[in-house]
Design a protein around this nucleic acid. Structure first.
Length: 683
DNA sequence: ATTAGGG
DNA sequence: CCCTAAT
């Protein structure tokens, strides 16, 4: 069985903890290959890079050696395993790693359309390229709030041939992928294209026009339906035909825009390439539902949008959205450029593009309902029923930014005999990898939380097909880490069919294997270890939300667009030991006056710049005080000494000590200067 | 491993 | 406190 759940996090206003330390740690550990500056659009770019690379490879038709790309910053791994007669590829991408400190969230969504295989990211992208697959990534971040949406696919291993019953869609031109599909796809596409114009026109008449207005309608080029950015190396045809899946009549379009930043020079942004986004469209039903959410009442305002530099994008049907940003100029600039250059077409015709000039308007305007956006506002906690809330708008003034984000889809395979706890852990791990921790995962079935982690999925009925629909996951802020108000969403799932799939493990994530996780000795980390939902959530989320209707709605919204069952495994690489992931920020231990005294004394003697010695001399037995801590403390002491006593916080430090701090600081600073001048002279 | 600074 | 870059 395959469950696809989308976890939306933060749309309700929950603020994502700044930078998941886990990610950082991972990075440090080296699991992260990408090196990005805070000013860069890490996630976005990374994803873009990966996608781009993949696309390119696809063109060149290199099947298995995917990653080698030119961009050292991105790493993609493929592991291939033979399954039945199909090849299954799992791709790992380490999204979270890319998150820079500043950007805490990234979004990306990857979907694949039906094929009976797990796509590798690469395949995925290819497929999407040609057809229904979509890959999108966007990030919305603000210094204060971020939202993340995450799509999770859960597979409970039971049968084989998971994908058997999906209508298959196919990717078209990927070399590796079945070629047989191409014809079909193309055919569909063609038909779609033909139909497109009308849609587009109609859309244009609608409010959508506004959105597009800022940019030229070039995107409307019906013939090509593919949008290519200036540099872009990729063209993505939009496919209008989506194979209906389940109750949703499909039709989604995928849009992908890829652009390369060649112009880094101008903005200073140096990313090699970026993908703007690709989406897969969603069912119309979904649109309607979504529209509903677009209504103001569903929005939460985000207090803080700083600037609109962000781009916003709207997809017509889709609701994806996103964007906003932090005020980083660099980032903004870069993005802006990106967006300016590219626009997105959505299947139904319209596309939107992010435009710097009038982004907000565009987004909002979606009277057509086509665009979606949300922005991360905060606040409203659970308000909207949950998941859907994912779309919010930020300002009442009508401008909204989309903060929505797509997160990489996670594919989780778990045996029926696994316990709920392991399920939670598995999801948590996956999510944590992306979000960086700070969240708890809750499991809901038919609206009820399953608190007993020891029950097996079988016992809880999760594995029952009919229950799959009601399975939901909630992400809640980890009380320990995430102080902000709770908000979460549950997700509803969406895949109708159960597809048997062989049990496989993530190749890349050793620790993740749910099955084994229970046995693993890892101490329950504060984060993952106990994925227990907090009660407040319950309150926030009435169980009834799981009602059928809700389910549908949520599906529509959340639905992972692709019906594809393919399992795309996108796994952050860095999850090494869950333990490490969970690493938490060191406890705060304010320096006592005594310690300050010792520090001052040591510094007076040794000077600044010899923290190692200071540590040895005055804090040798305080193992929790590292030389870095001492250095930082000195820094703060100096600052404290300079500010007005009224502005000081915490345990007051005797003025006498502060005076000594200042004098010592002045003295040693002078010494330092002297040293330097001497060196100068010597040279 | 340390140091220096920015966040 | 964290994180990085540079030593």
């Amino acid at each position: 069985m395959v469950l696809q759940k989308r976890l939306d996090y933060g749309f309700h206003g929950y603020q994502v903890p700044a930078i998941p330390r886990a990610s950082r740690s991972a990075r440090r550990r080296g699991s992260l290959r990408i090196n990005v500056n805070d000013n860069q659009m890490c996630d976005f770019e990374l994803l873009a890079t990966v996608a781009d690379k993949l696309l390119q490879e696809g063109k060149s038709s290199a099947p298995s050696n995917a990653s080698a790309g030119k961009d050292p910053s991105a790493t993609v791994k493929d592991s291939v395993k033979q399954e039945q007669h199909d090849e299954e590829n799992l791709l790992k991408v380490e999204p979270s790693d890319q998150v820079s400190c500043e950007e805490s969230v990234f979004v990306s969504e990857i979907f694949s359309q039906g094929h009976n295989q797990n796509y590798t990211l690469k395949k995925f992208l290819h497929a999407q390229n040609d057809d229904g697959l979509g890959f999108s990534s966007e990030i919305a971040t603000s210094e204060h709030s971020e939202k993340v949406g995450c799509a999770v696919k859960l597979t409970i291993c039971k049968h084989k041939n998971l994908f058997g019953n999906f209508p298959s869609k196919v990717e078209g031109g990927s070399p590796n992928y079945g070629e047989s599909c191409e014809d079909i796809v193309e055919d569909k596409i063609d038909r779609k294209l033909e139909a497109e114009p009308r849609k587009i026109e109609s859309l244009m008449n609608g409010t959508v026009a506004d959105k597009c207005s800022s940019e030229d309608p070039m995107e409307l080029d019906r013939k090509s339906l593919a949008f290519v950015s200036s540099d872009s190396s990729v063209e993505v045809p939009l496919s209008r035909d989506r194979i209906p899946f389940g109750s949703f009549p499909g039709h989604q379009d995928d849009v992908k825009v890829v652009s390369r930043d060649d112009d880094e020079n101008s903005s200073g942004c140096t990313q090699p390439s970026t993908i703007i986004k690709a989406f897969r469209t969603r069912p119309r039903i979904g649109d309607r539902i979504i529209r509903k959410f677009l209504e103001p009442r569903y929005w939460k305002g985000a207090p803080k949008l700083k600037d609109d530099e962000e781009m916003k994008a709207v997809y017509r049907n889709r609701k994806i959205c996103y964007t906003r940003q932090r005020s980083q100029r660099n980032l903004s600039c870069k993005r802006r450029k990106l967006f300016n250059r590219s626009s997105v077409l959505t299947s139904d015709g319209i596309s939107s593009e992010g435009i710097s000039s009038s982004p907000e308007k565009g987004i909002n305007g979606d009277a057509t309902g086509s665009g979606v956006k949300m922005h991360g506002a905060s606040g409203a906690s659970s308000s909207v029923s949950g998941q859907q809330a994912s779309f919010q708008s930020r300002d009442s003034d009508g401008r909204q930014a989309l903060d929505g984000v797509m997160v990489p889809e996670l594919f989780i395979e778990i045996p029926e005999t696994a316990t709920v706890g392991s399920l939670k852990r598995a999801v948590m791990e996956a999510v944590t990898a992306i979000l960086g921790g700070g969240l708890h995962v809750g499991v809901l079935i038919q609206g009820k939380k399953i608190r007993d982690d020891n029950k097996t999925l079988l016992q809880t009925g999760i594995s029952h097909d009919d229950r799959m629909d009601t399975l939901g996951f909630m992400l809640e802020p980890n009380p320990a880490q995430a102080p902000p108000p709770p908000c979460l969403e549950n997700s509803s799932f969406l895949l109708p069919s159960d597809i048997p799939q062989p049990l496989t493990r993530y190749p890349a994530t050793p620790t993740l294997n749910p099955v084994t996780s229970d046995a693993s000795p890892d101490p329950p980390e504060s984060n993952l270890g106990n994925c227990v939902e907090s009660d407040h959530d319950s309150v926030l989320f009435p169980t009834d939300i799981s009602t059928v209707k809700t389910t549908l709605d949520s599906r529509a919204l959340v639905a992972i667009p692709s019906m594809s069952v393919e399992a795309l495994a996108v796994v952050p690489i860095h999850r090494k030991s869950s333990r490490s992931e969970l690493v938490q920020r060191r406890m705060r231990r304010p320096f006592s006056v005594t310690e300050v005294e010792a520090l001052v004394q040591a510094v007076e003697k040794l000077g600044t710049g010899r923290w190692r010695d200071v540590k040895l001399r005055a804090f040798d037995n305080a193992k929790h005080r590292t030389y870095v801590d001492l250095k930082d403390k000195w820094k703060t002491l100096v600052h404290t000494a300079r500010i007005s006593p009224l502005q000081r916080r915490g345990e007051p430090v005797p003025q006498e000590l502060l005076d000594r701090v200042l004098s010592a600081h002045a003295y040693w600073s002078q010494q330092q200067v002297k040293q330097q001048s001497e060196n100068w002279l010597l040279l």
